[in-house]
């Protein structure tokens, strides 16, 4: 048994991801249905094609580009981004969907890349922090994070920037209280929340076409 997994407390039943990782770790030979989406699943029901446990080549759409990558079924989207595509802006911190440091846009919605398998991500539009702006051309959210010093060590910052970007798209006019709750799915250890509060509200103003 995977001793690392077994030690994790309080997990009542295995998450889908933990389950798949354990299966991979045990090399039981189970694989993953190829291709995401309903049509793929329906097709697979007729002819149960199986991929894995070895590597399979998949195509991901990341920051508007098509990227080929070879992964085992147990590889998370986060590890595919960081280890195989050198997109290291998304950070690996808790690796279990708690801290938000790996937040990406998944078809425009914020999602924890550590909790999605790379193979599941086929056919979905993925945007990482690298796709939101560059140092010479910052997005409004990024500019406001710099302006209000909403960062210190900076390790949680990309996750917050992506989460904030997604949040403001859905909530263009948040109150301070709403914004704080809205970004409660991300953790910072240095304690940059004071600057972040100002950054979020300032970015909201700018995105609404304010001053």
């Amino acid at each position: 048994m995977a001793n690392d997994e077994a030690k994790r407390p309080g997990v009542e039943g295995l998450s889908r991801r933990t389950f798949l990782k354990s299966v991979g770790a045990g090399s039981v030979g189970a694989g993953l249905l190829p291709r995401g989406g309903e049509s793929g699943a329906a097709q697979a029901a007729e002819a149960p094609a199986v991929v894995g446990p070895g590597e399979t080549s998949i195509t991901l759409s990341i920051n508007g580009e098509t990227r080929e990558v070879s992964v085992e079924p147990r590889v998370t989207l986060l590890d595919a981004l960081r280890n195989r595509l050198d997109l290291t802006g998304s950070k690996k911190v808790c690796d279990e969907g708690t801290c938000g440091a790996c937040t990406v846009l998944y078809d425009g919605e914020p999602a924890y890349a550590c909790s999605i398998l790379a193979m599941e991500a086929e056919g979905h539009e993925i945007t990482t922090v690298e796709g939101l702006g560059t140092p010479d051309e910052l997005s409004a959210v990024q500019e406001c994070f710099v302006k209000h010093d909403a960062l210190q060590c900076g390790f949680c910052t990309p996750g917050f920037v992506v989460a904030c970007t997604a949040y403001l798209r859905e909530n263009p006019e948040p109150t301070p209280e709403e914004a704080q709750r809205g970004l409660g799915g991300n953790y910072c250890r240095c304690g940059t929340y004071a600057g972040m509060r100002e950054a979020v509200l300032d970015a909201a103003r700018i995105l609404r076409g304010g001053e």
Binding site: R82, N83, T88, T128, Q142, V146, L151, G154, P158
Partner: peptide, 20 residues
């Protein structure tokens, strides 16, 4: 403004964990 802010908010800042 913090000089390395733009690198950190865009994910360009490379930490040890990010070195490939």
């Amino acid at each position: 403004p913090r000089l390395d802010g733009p690198d950190k908010v865009t994910g360009r800042a490379k930490y040890a964990f990010d070195i490939n």
